[in-house]
Simulated scan of single mutants.
Amino acid sequence: MYIPFDQLPPQARLWIYQANRPLTEAEQTEIKPLLERFATDWSSHGRGLQASAQLLHKQFLVLANNESATAASGCSIDKSVNFVRELEQHFNVAFFDRTQLAFLKDGNVEMVGMQELKAKVAAGEIDENTLYFDTLVNNYGDLQAEWPKPARQSWLSRYF
């Protein structure tokens, strides 16, 4: 069962997939109905999930499930991963590259490779107040309250 993204309860579980590039307007227009269809049909052991899906900042695919209604099972999570992999192929974009970090700078998402991080911190291009898109946020309430958040409030704090 599809739930509009802004109507999810705070405890709804999230899976955030970060694209390696911004999606074009045409791609966003094409992907939105696919996301809604997937959320509508997403199930766990034959029981429909109270699910939603959303694109944020042109670069983040967020799948969500109200776990208090029906928990996602391993099989249903596998279905979601397969769905995201299909999107990767169709749109020629990578959603599973964990070597890139995303920051909000001047209103835009800036991608920084893990291998570049120390140099960017040393040069002052990234500091403790730079807003970081932590893809490990796992519930809707935290996404609403603190996403993106200052790098010092994330696992990146060790670099400052």
Rank of each mutant, 00 (worst) to 15 (best):
S43P: 08
S43E: 14
S43A: 14
S44G: 13
S44Q: 10
S44D: 08
S44W: 08
S44H: 02
H45F: 03
H45W: 01
H45M: 13
G46S: 12
G46A: 14
L49D: 08
L49W: 06
L49E: 09
A51D: 06
S52R: 05
A53C: 13
A53F: 10
A53T: 09
Q54P: 02
Q54K: 14
Q54G: 00
L55G: 05
L55W: 08
L55F: 09
L56N: 01
H57I: 00
H57F: 13
K58P: 00
K58L: 01
Q59E: 07
Q59A: 04
Q59F: 03
Q59W: 00
V62Q: 09
L63E: 12
L63N: 14
A64E: 11
N65D: 02
N65M: 06
N65R: 08
N65V: 15
N65K: 09
N66C: 10
E67M: 01
E67T: 07
E67S: 11
S68C: 02
S68F: 00
A69R: 08
A71N: 07
A71S: 06
A71H: 05
A72Q: 05
A72G: 11
A72M: 11
A72T: 06
A72R: 02
S73G: 09
G74T: 04
C75H: 04
C75D: 01
C75K: 03
S76Q: 09
S76M: 03
S76F: 04
S76R: 10
S76T: 06
I77G: 00
I77E: 01
D78L: 10
D78P: 07
D78V: 00
K79F: 06
K79M: 14
S80I: 03
S80L: 12
V81N: 01
V81L: 12
N82T: 14
N82D: 10
N82P: 01
V84I: 11
V84L: 08
R85T: 10
E86D: 15
L87E: 10
L87I: 09
L87W: 13
L87H: 05
H90R: 15
H90D: 03
F91E: 00
F91R: 06
N92P: 01
V93P: 00
V93C: 00
A94W: 00
F95H: 07
F95S: 04
F95V: 10
F95I: 08
F96I: 02
D97T: 01
D97G: 07
D97K: 03
R98M: 05
R98E: 11
T99Q: 15
Q100R: 14
Q100D: 07
